[in-house]
């Protein structure tokens, strides 16, 4: 209780203000969602039946359209039968915030009732592995190729036109091909992430490399650095902070390909979890699954950003953030 205000007092005014805006940017959409969910007079196009009355097909807990409910109430009144009762409700695909929060908690910490699906943590772990391998393979090829293309003009001229063409080919289009070549399990999924990330990666890294100040290379050459050493002693250390930033953006990019990738072959991972829950109409679980992807992406990026401050103490562009 007392540590949090202490933490706040330790910050200067501008940091506190920035933090307030940061929290606000999350609270604002949550507020809108809550209004739509908890204020019965906003939207709520359905009625949840609490008493079926004389209507033979009404069941308790059933969602019916507002107009239909009104017609049935009128019908019953004219037929002099018991009137049905109900409360305004939102469609099943829009659960309230607390329901999603409960689903998130259940999904993460309680064992699943259905036996044909993996639990949320297990699904997530599988997804994270797909992302990890996809991004690693892409980076192992893309970063060196990008640095070379950015440093040596002939390499760039040879590699970039084709890559420029290839990056417009939608990665999911290679799904069937990837399955034919790599089977139905994780192989094609990783391949889709690689295809989706690699080509952008080469171009972005090459561009970052080209932005390195040319006088730094000239200075190194006048100090006696030979051609090959330039790459390891000047180019790579010189672009490292920017390269790191690029990689952070590209990692987010890889996540966006995850859902498509996991639908290929046998569905798996968090996508399998989400589609399966949607099939059972457990939309609270669906939202929880989607949100957990966002949370992982957001938190991992925050951590990586924090890490870059310790990794690159000389990088001044961070101070402006």
């Amino acid at each position: 209780m007392s540590t949090f205000p202490k933490l706040l007092r330790g910050m200067d005014a501008s940091t506190r203000k920035r933090l307030a805006f940061g929290i606000g940017s999350f609270l604002l959409p949550l507020l809108i969602w809550s209004l739509v969910s908890y204020a019965p007079f906003i939207w709520h196009p359905k009625v949840m039946v609490t008493e079926s009355g004389g209507v033979d097909y009404f069941q308790i807990g059933m969602l019916v359209d507002k107009e239909m409910f009104a017609t049935e109430v009128e019908n019953m009144r004219q037929a002099q039968q018991a009137l049905p009762a109900g409360t305004p409700a939102n469609p099943i695909y829009l659960p309230a915030p607390h329901e999603v929060a409960q689903a998130l908690y259940r999904g993460l910490f309680e064992p699943l009732q259905q036996t044909d699906t993996l639990s949320m943590p297990a699904s997530l772990w599988h997804s994270i592995q797909i992302i990890f391998w996809g991004f690693l393979i892409s980076s192992l090829i893309g970063v060196p190729l990008g640095v070379l293309a950015g440093t040596y003009v002939p390499v760039g001229r040879l590699a970039e036109p084709f890559i420029e063409f290839f990056r417009y080919l939608p990665a999911p289009a290679f799904g069937a091909l990837a399955v034919a070549i790599l089977g139905i399990y994780d192989g094609p999924k990783i391949a889709i992430i690689v295809i989706g990330t690699l080509f952008q990666q080469v171009l972005i890294v090459a561009n970052t490399t080209r932005k390195l100040e040319p006088t730094l290379i000239e200075a190194a050459r006048t100090l006696g650095t030979r051609r090959l050493q330039l790459l390891s002693r000047v180019v790579v250390p010189g672009i490292l902070p920017d390269l790191y930033r690029d990689q952070r953006i590209l990692l987010g990019w890889a996540w966006t390909y995850l859902i498509v990738a996991e639908l290929i072959g046998t569905s798996s991972g968090i996508t399998w979890y989400i589609t399966q829950q949607a099939r059972y109409q457990h939309f609270d679980n669906v939202y929880a699954g989607i949100m957990v992807i966002g949370l992982i992406g957001f938190v991992s990026d925050l951590l990586l950003a924090r890490l870059s401050k310790t990794l690159f103490p000389w990088d001044r562009s961070q101070e402006r953030r």
């Binding site: 100040e213 000239e218 200075a219 006048t222 250390p237 010189g238 902070p241 690159f312 001044r316």
Partner: peptide
């Protein structure tokens, strides 16, 4: 030895 107008020190060192 060369000294440039823009310093051109290696910022990471």
């Amino acid at each position: 030895g060369m000294v440039f107008q823009g310093y051109s020190l290696f910022p990471w060192l």
